[in-house]
Design a protein around this nucleic acid. Structure first.
Lengths: 127, 127
DNA sequence: AATTTACACGTACGGATGTACGTGTACAAG
DNA sequence: CTTGTACACGTACATCCGTACGTGTAAATT
């Protein structure tokens, strides 16, 4: 419904932090970054500002600390993002992407098993 | 190996045309565009030029026509692109993306069945 | 009280992106 | 031969992106 500009790659990383840790100050988001991928404090700050401007987050001052909260649900954003990728890279067909993921990547045996169960469950539900 | 700058969204669409129709002139790529998504002739031209500059395509003059060919295989580019997305949006875990694709999208019953068979085959191969 | 620390907020800046236009020229149509 | 058509190639340009720096100020430390 709400038509937001799409997320850039860097913005995605920060949005994910917000979804994971919930409402967060710049520092909390900064510190929630996975190791091996640390952007500068002010870079995180810029991304949070941009997320808000694009409508993906909102913020309020708590004392002198600004607290950012996700405003779009992860599921929604993931759908939009993946749909866009599927459209551009696979002409809109999702199956080739799924096939790529399970055939061309080092997906584990346990993950395969989980998928098998998930599919079985879905198929059962649908009948 | 070759470290290319990643593809932008628009570039992906044009790269896909090259993979689909094989070596193509600007016009051929232009005309291979799916309906409902037609960029300007010169926009396609610009993207082809940029694909070449980034190392994803090569070109040669055939008479006075410039013919572009894909230089990176679709599979490789797809892997790079999807890996990047998975990293940024799912922290590197592929399973959540697969789960999203089969749970949160309108995947068809026949596609589900196909996946079930694919998984069965893979599991058999691995044992 | 003086100094350091931590933050908010504005600003910056080169390169990427999406989207084309203009000019020159070879070939085709008349 | 003249005029239109199609294409190559250079250029453009606003906006976005990644990545920060600088300045002002409130809170904490010495």
């Amino acid at each position: 419904m709400v038509d937001r500009p799409s997320l850039s790659k860097g913005e995605m990383e920060i949005a994910r932090l917000l979804w994971d840790v919930g409402p967060a100050t710049v520092r909390q988001a900064f510190e929630a970054q996975p190791e091996g991928r640390e952007m500068d404090f002010t870079t995180v700050q810029t991304y949070l500002r941009r997320l808000e401007k694009k409508g993906y987050a909102s913020s309020k001052l708590d004392g002198r600390l600004r607290v950012y909260s996700a405003r779009a649900r992860a599921r929604t954003v993931i759908r939009e993002t993946v749909d866009d990728l599927v459209l551009r890279l696979f002409g809109g067909e999702k199956l080739p992407l799924v096939r790529h993921l399970i055939e061309d990547t080092d997906i584990g045996a346990d993950e395969l098993a989980e998928l098998r169960k998930l599919i079985a469950k879905l198929e059962k539900e649908r009948s």
